[in-house]
């Protein structure tokens, strides 16, 4: 059988196959999906391709002086991390702009630390620049902390991971080895 789409000559068939593959890759590269906000426009930066990262976000209400809520976007499950390897490899064709992460919510008020919730999830969207939490939203552009209805509750900053772990260690009553209690 021979047709313009299925020529008899093997060399021509190979050429068509490669041309088709190249076209698909080129088209894929041209439309990599929606554009994420540039990192330099974000006050809070989250690396979507870091699947083993814990990100701590410390949010203070406008009226509060000595208390805060600490949102901890935890590292992903083993299989989600495997999937991230694929995301990393195909990012030149399809960039990752959103992600869902397991969430733990802690709070500190008057020096008292508590874990409020350990079962929720946080959705990070780098196109809209928002983190959607079960009870609120965080705007990555200016760090504002909003209710689900959009009312401003306060502001958030990202807490360095080491400090976040140190905070959790204190909550758990597990000091670092060699640290004086």
């Amino acid at each position: 059988m021979s047709s313009p789409l299925y020529p008899r000559q093997p060399a021509l068939r190979r050429a068509i196959l490669w041309a088709t593959l190249a076209s698909v890759l080129l088209l894929g590269a041209c439309s990599r999906g929606p554009e994420p906000l540039p990192a330099d426009q974000l006050r809070i930066r989250i690396n979507l391709l870091c699947s083993t990262c814990d990100d701590f976000l410390q949010c203070r209400a406008n009226a509060s002086t000595d208390g805060f809520t600490l949102y901890r976007m935890r590292e992903k499950s083993f299989w989600a991390q495997i999937a991230t390897i694929g995301d990393y490899l195909i990012q030149s064709l399809r960039r990752k702009t959103s992600d869902q992460r397991p969430l733990t919510v802690y709070a500190e008020q008057n020096g008292l630390r508590v874990a409020r919730s350990t079962t929720g999830a946080a959705r990070v969207d780098l196109v809209s620049g928002l983190i959607s939490l079960p009870d609120s939203l965080i705007d990555l552009r200016d760090g504002s902390w909003r209710s689900l209805q959009g009312e401003v509750l306060g502001g958030c900053v990202s807490m360095p991971r080491r400090e976040g772990y140190a905070w959790v260690r204190e909550l758990l009553g597990r000091p670092l080895p060699g640290a004086t209690p």
């Binding site: 814990d54 935890r74 590292e75 991971r161 080491r162 772990y165 140190a166 959790v168 260690r169 758990l172 597990r174 670092l176 080895p177 060699g178």
Partner: peptide, 10 residues
């Protein structure tokens, strides 16, 4: 000792 500060205490 440096590493233990960088990982989840749990």
């Amino acid at each position: 000792l440096e590493r233990i500060e960088e990982i989840d205490p749990e």
